[in-house]
Write a protein that binds this DNA or RNA. Structure first.
Lengths: 263, 263
DNA sequence: TATCCGACTATCGTATGCAATTGATGGCGC
DNA sequence: GCGCCATCAATTGCATACGATAGTCGGATA
């Protein structure tokens, strides 16, 4: 396994997707249910790397994900790539159009609002549960994560983008609810896509402060306050997404829809 | 299992898509994003049939899903089967153990309670949204669905089991929120597994009545009342699941856990 | 010159073959 | 007789090959 990862890391060093090689190591804890100890199949590795690349916005919404290209870069067969793409499609971060190849999903404005709405609901629930029973070790993990976020701030790179999202996934994990974690993972992923698509630029500095506030609120054991902070944080994130309808038309079909009725 | 594969086998004998005509006509709007007009790939067909078989409890939790066996019965290659299994795994209704094959997921008691808890939250949200804006056509679809449920009651078969679950998915669809629909689909699917695993027998008669009550509550536009009815309905479903810890130990590991600490 | 049609290319969908891993069975030593 | 190890069968993981489909480019015709 280690050898496989090594070959992939080195092989990407001279490929086009080399970005992903750099940031991989720190990512491994959170990226999936699978821990380091389990052997990873090739398909699994491709899945993780692609997912990571998308969440770090190295692969932007709309980017074509040709099976051949990816297979060549990772030095694996298309079979393994297909498996990864199917999974990513099931998570909603990759669109899979029959006979026309896959591409990074492009959430529309409507979907974006939808996702944020659900995210508020889910994460409010996370907070409620954590206020009820978050132990010392949980706080330790949160604080450790925030420290990593702060450390990553300096490079202003993809790492901080990803860590910002993973803070929320970590919160969900700490509830101990697998299903809730799954759903939060999904909305957070989709939010990454939304930000990549609509936000002018990601400004993670604020986010870290807000994350610290969330931890503090959790410590206070005040449900209402904690929930309020979380919702405000999510509002801030949505604000950063600049989901105003008059900019960045999501889709040609969206535009043409208005003309179709007049013809 | 054998019976199911047999029915599938015989019905696929004269063409894969026609088969689904028999069992899926009412479901087609629900079962996936794909509409009838799009051509379905083999992998897609296998996916739908397997999913349906699992949700109708023809394939029970724990059943081994050998690639070869399925491929032979469906007269397709293992490749198509694998694609379907990966998708089902992503939805959480199939477990995929590396090098050891797939099997229908076996939710533990703990997971079961977790799922029900989330389901309550999600479906309460569905109700809140529907009370706000459910149009005439929406009610028509709901009533049509309930009629189908009633018609299916007579055979006491798998169809009524599936339709009962799909009522909830239909509710979610009517909110217009893709993400919410996704999540509801997932919890409903998992609940099917849970019922298959723990419930003594499925008694769908009650469910239909309860579904009618839900529609009535939605008509009344009384959020609190509608939400209450839905939650009561879900409580009833959970009750039917008989999630009492002292019966039907989910897992050998669960049992041995208690012994491990004493060794 | 503009439009339509047909061949071409690139890419995907599927099948098949081989390598790798797991679990089992039988033989061997104790 | 009992336990351990090696070999074997079964099944999955992966790669490659082939057929099918969609988009593109060039030529023929009006």
């Amino acid at each position: 396994m280690a050898t496989l990862l090594y070959t992939i890391l080195t092989s990407t060093a001279d490929g086009a997707i080399e970005v992903m090689g750099h940031v991989l190591p720190t990512a491994f804890g959170l990226l999936g249910e699978a821990t380091l100890s389990e052997r990873s199949s090739r398909s699994e590795v491709v899945y993780r790397l692609l997912r990571q690349a998308i969440l770090e916005q190295a692969l932007k919404p709309g980017t074509k994900l040709s099976e051949d290209t990816i297979a060549d870069h990772f030095k694996v067969s298309r079979t393994s790539v297909r498996g990864a793409l199917v999974r990513l499609n099931a998570e909603g971060i990759v669109d899979l159009r029959a006979n026309k190849g896959a591409c990074v999903a492009e959430p529309t404005l409507e979907e974006a609002r939808d996702i944020f709405s659900l995210r508020r609901m889910l994460e409010a629930e996370v907070i409620r549960r954590l206020v009820a029973d978050l132990g010392t070790s949980g706080f330790k993990r949160l604080e450790q994560h925030v420290r990593e976020e702060q450390a990553a701030l300096s490079d202003h790179g993809p790492l901080s983008i990803r860590l910002a999202g993973e803070f929320h996934i970590l919160l969900a994990e700490l509830t101990g609810s697998q299903a809730l974690t799954r759903f939060v993972r999904e909305v957070v992923s989709r939010c990454s896509l939304i930000l990549a698509r609509f936000a002018r630029l990601h400004s993670p500095e604020c986010a870290v402060d807000e994350h610290i506030q969330i931890i503090r609120a959790l410590r206070s054991k005040d449900i209402a306050a904690a929930e309020k902070i979380m919702l405000e944080h999510l509002d801030a994130v949505e604000l950063r997404a600049e989901l105003n309808p008059d900019k960045a038309e999501p889709d040609i079909s969206e535009i043409l829809k208005r003309y179709a009725s007049e013809s």
